[in-house]
């Protein structure tokens, strides 16, 4: 790392970008810069080649059609696979999370995913909309997850990945678990700017990609108040 800038790629904002997905890019860049880590950010559109040399890849939510198209293009392109093999970190949200698995459903058809996480997704009977809360896998050493979910999918996590959290409010993968992780890849149904409410996940990605054991603490008093409010709201619903 040392002198080279930390490179963050936002994958296909032209296809996978619902409200606020840009927030995760802004938050990572902000928290890196606040630690004196130089940052370069890239928005790679679906008609461009996916670079394989960045440090963190972000992939957001979207509608069925763009989700299926994004998956096809990423499989054909191969850049993201190469990046992961070289040790890059990935944060995937909602539709982006589903397409990292083996398969998902879009517009009623089963679609091939990238197979970067051992999971598969199908359709739930009802749409999950509302506050989401969970206790994060203890091995990650993170405080509880809080998010807003808005998805119709249900996800089944296989033996080679672990759920990100055990659900204490909301639906997540299936009402029991939420999200998944393996190596330096992390996926969640907390939609949009998930890192706004979970700065500890942002710092986890930064530690993974810089190799630092710990990062200088930042003033997270507003994020802490937001977390307190939303964790309580999820419990109340």
């Amino acid at each position: 790392m040392s002198t080279e800038a930390l490179r963050i790629v936002w994958i296909y904002p032209d296809l996978l970008s619902t409200y606020g997905d840009r927030g995760n890019l802004l938050i990572l860049a902000h928290r890196a810069a606040a630690r004196g880590i130089p940052v370069e950010t890239y928005e790679v559109r679906s008609d461009q080649q996916m670079p394989s040399t960045a440090d963190i890849y972000l992939i957001g939510g979207g509608e069925d059609g763009p989700q299926a198209l994004a998956s096809q293009r990423l499989i054909t392109d191969g850049g993201l696979h190469r990046a992961v093999n070289q040790g890059a970190s990935v944060l995937a949200i909602c539709a982006g999370y589903q397409l990292l698995g083996h398969s998902f459903f879009a517009k009623g058809a089963k679609c091939a995913g990238l197979g970067l996480l051992d999971l598969s997704s199908d359709r739930g009977v009802t749409r999950a909309v509302g506050e989401l809360r969970g206790d994060v896998d203890a091995r990650l050493g993170l405080p509880p997850l809080t998010g807003f979910e808005n998805h119709g999918g249900r996800t089944h996590v296989g033996a080679h990945a672990a759920p990100l959290a055990r659900v204490t409010a909301g639906v997540g993968n299936d009402g029991q678990t939420e999200g998944a992780w393996a190596g330096k890849i992390l996926g969640t149904y907390s939609h949009g700017p998930a890192l706004a409410r979970n700065p500890a996940i942002a710092d986890l990605l930064l530690r993974w990609s810089t190799g630092a054991d710990r990062l200088a603490p930042l003033d997270d008093s507003w994020a802490d108040r937001l977390r307190g409010e939303r964790l309580a709201a999820a419990g109340a619903v």
Partner: peptide, 9 residues
């Protein structure tokens, strides 16, 4: 709308 994500746009 119940979701505040748009603030980041």
């Amino acid at each position: 709308g119940l979701d505040t994500s748009w603030l980041w746009d």
